[in-house]
Amino acid sequence: MDIFVAALLPMAVVFIMFSLGLGLTPADFARIAQRPRAFCIGALNQIVMLPLIAFGIILGFGFTGETAVGLMILAACPGGATSNVITKLANWDVALSVTLTAAFSLTCVITVPLVLTFAVTYFMRTEAPEIDITSTAITAFLLTALPITVGVALRAFTPKAAAVIDPPVSMAATLLFIAVIAGAIASNWQIVRDNFASLGLGLIAMVAVVSFVSFALSRWLQATDREAKTISVETGVQNGALALAIAGLLVPDGPIFNAYAVPAALYGVVWLGSALPAFLLLARAGNT
């Protein structure tokens, strides 16, 4: 099963990012210039506020070592495509949601290596693994920026074909993501069960605090109600598959599901069991 997860994980992340790019047009990125305030508020929440809250949660719950690093990796990853679906269901700002997801998936080539380097240095100290920044950045580029770019290019040059394959590709990407998370959990069920009691509450707290503070901060910075809700969901949803892939880099020639990957795998359980129903209820309330 570990071999299954290791082989499927990079392919799943690439496919998910490609499906995201396939639904984008160059005009989506032009919205950044048209709506700089909303985008900058989203960037502040995702790139600055989210890692800071994750750091506070780690200190508050007393997490150390690989667990702390794994949580910081998760916080450094961009939002998942699920946030776009929730935003659409709630009739919030879909254009802003898609733009933020795509933009931060591209910029994670820079942000993930920086947060990762800080995390292993601060929490691992003398036991910190050697981090190859260049290799990590290249890996992040190959897993995120490149497939998104390919998807955008395909949509730009063959719009009719892209429109036809977009729905099944999006569905396949979602199923592939579920398969990866389920495979990682199933193949390491004992590890997941042993860590859920101590780590699960911290993950629930992180999602709840991040979502609430993100909304409040957005409103305080004069974002509209729809924009603030969109930014809150975007900041509260993380790309767990990408976090698993990044965690696997920290143990060369080791299992893809290592101690650093436990928070990302547990996040899938927490997300499906608590955060997703909460967001869906919020989305339903937004339509009434």
Results as ranks from 00 to 15, higher is better:
Ile246Glu: 07
Ala245Ile: 09
Tyr267Phe: 15
Val269Tyr: 05
Pro255Cys: 14
Gly254Gln: 08
Val269Ser: 07
Asn258Asp: 11
Trp271Phe: 15
Ile256Tyr: 06
Gly268His: 02
Ala247His: 09
Ala261Asp: 13
Asn258His: 11
Val270Arg: 02
Ala259Pro: 04
Leu244Ser: 00
Tyr260Met: 10
Val270Cys: 12
Pro263Thr: 12
Pro255Arg: 14
Gly268Phe: 01
Val262Trp: 02
Ala245Phe: 10
Ala241His: 06
Val269Gly: 07
Gly248Asp: 04
Gly248Leu: 05
Asp253Glu: 14
Gly268Trp: 03
Tyr267Leu: 12
Val262Thr: 14
Ile256Leu: 15
Gly240Lys: 09
Val262Phe: 05
Phe257Lys: 06
Ala264Cys: 14
Asn258Ala: 09
Leu244Asn: 00
Ala261Gln: 10
Ala265Asn: 05
Val262Gly: 04
Ala245Val: 09
Ala241Gly: 13
Leu242Lys: 01
Val251Glu: 06
Val269Asp: 05
Ala259Met: 11
Tyr267Glu: 15
Gly240Arg: 03
Ala265Gly: 13
Tyr260Cys: 06
Ala261His: 09
Ala241Thr: 15
Val269Arg: 00
Trp271Gly: 01
Tyr267Asn: 14
Pro252Met: 13
Asn258Gln: 10
Val251Ala: 10
Ala245Gln: 09
Gly268Asp: 03
Ala261Thr: 14
Leu249Arg: 05
Leu242Cys: 09
Leu242Trp: 01
Val251Tyr: 00
Ile246Ser: 06
Val270Asp: 00
Ala243Trp: 03
Ile256Glu: 12
Leu242Asn: 08
Pro263Glu: 10
Val251His: 00
Gly268Lys: 02
Leu244Ala: 01
Val262Glu: 03
Tyr260Asp: 03
Ile256Trp: 06
Tyr267Arg: 12
Ile246Thr: 04
Asp253Ile: 04
